[in-house]
Computed example of a mutant assay.
Amino acid sequence: MSGALLELDDVTAGYDRAVILDGVSLSLQPGESLALLGRNGVGKSTLIATIMGAAQLHGGKLRWKGYDMATLPPHRRAAQGLGWVAQERWIFPSLTVRENLTVAARRGPWTLEKVYALFPRLRERERNMGNQLSGGEQQMLAIARALLLNPRLLLLDEPLEGLAPVIVEELSHAIADMTASGDLAMILVEQHAAQALEMTCRAVIMDRGRIVHAGHSEALLADQALLDSAIGLGLAH
């Protein structure tokens, strides 16, 4: 049995009859961080949704710690140790920050005090309702809530999208700190290619539902020509 935490083997997936992912294979080791890059509409978010069970698996194998999880519903995958922060954030607007964080928390290394240390703004706003937070603070809350589920793998879908530069920098540091201990694996979907590569150890580039490049983040960060041709974002900052 493989020692990989997550394995996708020739995965084809999409929504109803629409095929978005076409023969995707990748693996992730415990504690490893992976940047998932590519232009809009190439299948990055669908890949995250497929891992969580929110998209339809048409073919291929999807394994978690060596075991087939293709038939597990999303809530069972979450219970197995997958955490997901979707683009929509899905915080509870009528609950306070503290209530949002504690409503579904599980025991483990990530505690309320630890997420407050990672996101000091949340400690300052802990009595505020979710709908009283800025967009950046809501993103911090969504990530912190996912951490309090104490996942083995955290899936982040465009966490820096639409945020002010100062918040992007603050969140980037926090995301890098989250995985620094090596206890938490992460897949990061991000349009900010430079930040994503600086926060991860490996990266893949997708195009038209396929992986067209895979390698170390540091090497890809240094390859401006490849990034320009494959992503077309000019190493977007």
Rank of each mutant, 00 (worst) to 15 (best):
G130C: 07
D68W: 04
M52K: 04
L118N: 02
L57F: 02
L149H: 08
W110F: 09
K65T: 12
L171P: 04
R89Q: 09
A105W: 03
M140A: 10
Q87F: 01
E161C: 04
R107D: 13
A79D: 15
Q80C: 03
T102G: 02
W90D: 14
G136P: 05
Q87H: 01
R63E: 03
W64Y: 11
L156C: 07
A146G: 01
L163K: 07
L57R: 00
Q132R: 15
G108E: 05
F92M: 14
L95S: 08
L82D: 09
E161D: 08
N128L: 15
P165N: 01
T102D: 06
W110R: 05
E99H: 11
A142I: 13
A146H: 13
R121V: 14
S172N: 06
W110E: 06
G60F: 01
R76A: 07
Y67K: 09
D68K: 04
E124V: 14
I167N: 01
A70H: 02
A86C: 10
P159D: 05
L122Y: 06
N131H: 12
P93A: 10
G53R: 03
R98P: 04
M69N: 00
A55G: 07
R98N: 12
P73S: 03
A54K: 12
I167D: 08
Q132I: 09
R125V: 13
L57N: 01
E170F: 12
M69D: 02
P120M: 08
P109H: 14
E124I: 13
G59M: 11
K114T: 15
G136N: 00
L101Y: 09
T102C: 07
L171R: 10
V103R: 13
K65D: 14
T102K: 05
A104D: 14
N100W: 12
E170M: 14
L62G: 00
Q138C: 14
Q56F: 02
S172Q: 13
S94T: 15
G130H: 05
E124P: 08
L82K: 11
H75C: 05
V103Y: 13
M52R: 01
Q87A: 04
I167Q: 01
N128M: 15
A55N: 00
G108H: 00
L57I: 01
P165G: 03
N128W: 11
R145A: 08
L118I: 11
E99P: 10
G135A: 11
R107F: 00
L147V: 12
Q56G: 10
E158C: 02
V166H: 09
A117H: 11
Y116M: 00
A78Y: 12
E124L: 15
P74D: 07
L154Y: 00
G136W: 00
V115M: 12
L147E: 00
